[in-house]
Each structure stands twice: as C-alpha cells, then as structure tokens.
Design a protein around this nucleic acid. Sequence first.
DNA 1: GAAGATTACGAGTGATTGCTCGTGTTTTTC
DNA 2: GAAAAACACGAGCAATCACTCGTAATCTTC
Lengths: 209, 209
Amino acid sequence: MAETTEDPRPRRRQARGERRMAEILAAAATVFARLGYEAATTNKIAAEAGISPGSLYQFFTNKEAIARALVQDYLLELGRAHRGALDLADPAGLGLVELVDRAVDPIVAFNLAHPGFKALFARPDMPPELAAALAPLQTALRARVEQIIGELAPHRDGTERARAALTCVHIVQGVISLITSADPAERPPLTGELKRALCGYLESLVARP
Amino acid sequence: MAETTEDPRPRRRQARGERRMAEILAAAATVFARLGYEAATTNKIAAEAGISPGSLYQFFTNKEAIARALVQDYLLELGRAHRGALDLADPAGLGLVELVDRAVDPIVAFNLAHPGFKALFARPDMPPELAAALAPLQTALRARVEQIIGELAPHRDGTERARAALTCVHIVQGVISLITSADPAERPPLTGELKRALCGYLESLVARP
DNA sequence: GAAGATTACGAGTGATTGCTCGTGTTTTTC
DNA sequence: GAAAAACACGAGCAATCACTCGTAATCTTC
C-alpha cells in the first residue's frame, strides 16, 4: 500500500539539524513518559522541544518515526548495558549470587534512567515496526541467558533451557515495573528481592528434576 | 468540574436492555482485546455488538463507563478465582509446592479466558477511576499473599513480608503475560516454570537471612 | 388500547489530531 | 555574493473520534 522504501533523497543534515533531532527525541521521551504513546501529540512534542510542528516534520516523517528513532537510541544503550553486564559474567568463576547481581543492576539502572522506554514497550498495540526493532535485542538477550543456564544446568535439554531463559526475562520484566513505579527508597530492597527470586529460580533449575 | 454524581434518574431496564448491555460488554471485551483501549472506537464496539452508536449510549454514558463496567465484571470473577484458590490453601497443611499449585492455576486460567483484561490493565495511562476499581482487589490479594508468607516465614517482619508479597504478585504478572502470548502447547510447561520460580523464591525467603 | 417509558436508529456535530504548505530566515556551496 | 539547500514558522486542512439528537419502533403499565 504505502511506500515503505528508503527516503529517496537523503538530505544532508547540518550540525544545527542534528542538534534539533536530539532535542526532539529528548522531548518525545519526556512526553511519552508523561502521557504514554497514544496521548502524546506531535504538537505537544514540538512544544516540549521548543519548536513548531512544521519544524518537527522536517526531521521525522511522522509520529511513529519519532518513536522508532527513540527506540533505536534505547536499543543501543540497552544493548551496551546488557552486554556489559552479561559478558563479564563467567558462570563458572562467579557464584550464582554474584552472577545475578551483575546482571540485574545495570538493567534496573537503565529502566530508571529512561522512563520513556516503558511507555513505548508497555503499550498493548505495538506496531510491527517497533516490535521488529526490539526483536534482535530480545533474541540476543535470551540467547545469552540461555547459554548461562546451559552452563549452570548442563543436564537440561535445549527446550528446557529456552523456557527457563524466557521465564527469567519475564520475571525481570514483571519486577522491574514494580521497582520503577515504587518509592525511590524502596527500590534497592526491591531490587534485592528480584535478585533473590532469580537466584531461587535458577537454583531450583539446577537442583530439581 | 464535571458532574461526578450518580445518575439522577436511574431508569428501569427492560429484560431486552439487560441483554443488550451484556452483549455490548462482550463486544467491548473483544474489541479491546483486539485493538487495545485507545484504538477501540465506540462505533466499532457498537458494530461488533450489532447495534447503532446511538443505542450504545443509551446504556453507557461514555467509553470509559464501558471499560469500568467490564472491569467490574472481571473483578467479580477474578475475586472469585483468587478467593477460591487462596482460601482453601492452608500453608501449614499443604506443602509449598501444592500451595503454589493451587494459587497459580486459577489465575492462569482466568487470564486465558479473558483476553480483554490485559488490554485494560496493561495500558500505560490508566485513568484513576479504573485504577481505583482495581485497588481493592490488589490490596486484598496482596494481603492474602502477605499472610501466607507470614505463616511460611514467621521470622520476617512486616516490611519484609509486604515486599515479598509485592514481588510475588509481580513475578506472576510478568510470567502470565508470557504464558498468555505463548503458543498454547507451551502454556502448561511455562505455567510449571512460573510455579517453580515462586517455589524457589518462597523457599529462599524461608531459608535465607 | 392508550399513555408513557424504554429501546433503536444513524446522519451529523464539535473537538482534536497528525500532518501540510506557503513563506521567510539561516547556512552552505560555488 | 548569489544560488541552493537546510531550517523554521504557524495557521489551517482532512480525517477521525466520542458523542448527540430528532425520530420512530417496541414494550410496560393501567
């Protein structure tokens, strides 16, 4: 139906334009976090960025393109956080507790630092384009967790490991949403509970049939 | 600002009207589940119910009233499911595994049976009226979980128990969303993983400092 | 069986939203 | 320094949505 092709004339951005784009994305993150995706209007995003609606559309073809660009930003940073967290972790060398510790902290930190992230990914009707953008990250993350589980519990077969990895990811998602919406003073102890839950689950996975 | 008073003239519904209201709610649940709350238009709900937009507004004052009524329905049934699940459970008499078993199964069943539920409660900008409707159920559920945790782990103080109960609820929420969106054949084993996670968490809560 | 209430219709209204367009300013390119 | 490109504006358009209203059919009550 519509044109899904690349922009036929990629315009050469000036330094000013690049700055504006970053400002717009920051403004969009703020408005998305405050109102959610649907209720966030492009005019409000423009106002938050201190520019006119017309200017906004010189940099992004539509509202979804803004969300998509924001997602790309998040993906880069989240990917870095995950990679940094999970790559250093050596299941053999570290204890289970420390392993979970190093994996959970950066993820919690990222979610606290980027409230717009939740607003985009918690929405019930995620458009396929955004879902597709998230997929590689999810896959990579799941694969890494799966691999760690494989080292922890070698007697589990592939199917079981895949299920366990998925379960881990969703446990984190569920408790993260609790942590981010909780009183700041409650966040450290709740993060501790998340770690306890993951440790308990993984131990059970190693020990029990 | 607006009138928050009761309907000044509570009209006497005919049997036909009661039937229509149920039909409208069923149609709304379908459309909410399919499109999410924001994207679900009142005209689409009316069409799904096989009536005109005008007729819809003879039974519900606005779109949110439909959601509210649907939530009330869900609350009744969910409350029944939870009560049935948790009231029978006697932590002293039953083992931990059976306890978790009886608590989890009906909750999973409810979420599978009512796809509209997620669409209403997963949305990022839940209006206060809907949140208020959900609050009593959440409080009751949390209190019951807290009580069970108290019996399992008497050495924990109130603050710790409250945190643990919250964590349990959010673990369930996170993995439930995985279960409902998974392939039907994967649902039973994933439900097993949820139970394993809860057991692992609760055991760790009982055993470790 | 008539009066009054309820149910039903569906084109239409006012408000809102994503987005455009004509116009003017600033920066780059030659 | 002039032409071209990028940036900026903001009033307003077309489309959409929640909701209304005038009218008519159906049911209840007496």
